[in-house]
Amino acid sequence: MSSIRVKTFVLWVLMGSLFWGCLEAKSVELLNVSYDPTRELYKEVNAAFAKSWKAKTGDDVTIKQSHGGSGKQARAVIDGLEADVVTLALAYDVDAISQQARLLPKNWISALPHNSAPYTSTIVFLVRKGNPKKIRDWADLVKPGVGIITPNPKTSGGARWNYFAAWVYALEKFKSPAKAQAFLGALFKNVPVLDSGARGATTTFVERGMGDVLLAWENEALLVTQTIGKGRFEVVYPSVSILAEPSVALVQKNAAKHRTEKEAKAYLQFLYSPAGQAIAVKHFFRPVDADALKAAAKWFPKLKLVTIDQSFGGWQTAQKMHFADGGTFDKIYGGK
């Protein structure tokens, strides 16, 4: 009996290693570490790039893909997840990789056009059909009885854009940081659930029926109205919002180690090409190419957009002031 067991065990181990062998691919591989709402986008980009690369050079390239919350993904790269390229929700997270692990140069953001953001987005409101709570602008959010769903800005990149968009509005209206802080305090009082990521928040709003308004990326909001929640939701554009620039960057040290710099660079360039821009539009990201944007005008109404650099003096200062421990966000929650 025991000899049979030993044989079974050996067989298991062999089968295990065999399984393992099958998973190893035999061509150039790139690892793209990305954030949550780009899942559908990169699925298509990766296939399109592999095809165009094959046509151009005759080489096979496979793109391995990883998704998660932007901060979590940045931390994974810092801790040794060997990404060749990162495509994260905000520049701050790429900065963190550059500062803490020195895997890419400090001035990475100037390596590619448009602040290394091949597509942009903004923050909009997603409301239930018919807009029962009559939510038109940011001021409507702080009314009593309005339930707002947003992820936690401390852990979610998307939620930080939400926060900054609200701040931009409040500062413009009240002209005083103290009053803006009070406005955000009132806003977050209306938040019944803080999911840790953008996708979790959308599920809470769409599937679990929580809240009256979801603060969301424009691309996520359109994805909901066009696919999973067709006919049940509406997008509301506020009077002012923020220009969200999700950053892409080559992780130089890793790419050099894997000898994939050529492919990785071409991959990022591809995002700026007409084909790449068209795929971005298809997944409701605003293209940076002016012609592509004009062609897709029906999806992306014009609205007043400000950038982090204009109104907050860049990510580092913005992050320090608002989200460091003891910063404005902690005061909003601590001052109860």
Binding site: G71, K72, A96, K154, T155, V191, V193
Partner: peptide
């Protein structure tokens, strides 16, 4: 609901600190 002070548990706080690079 993962609300700070109300429904935030310790393991979540650990993860959230990690994700803030802290």
């Amino acid at each position: 609901g993962n609300m700070p002070y109300k429904t935030e548990i310790v393991p979540l706080l650990i993860i959230s600190k990690l994700e803030q690079f802290d």
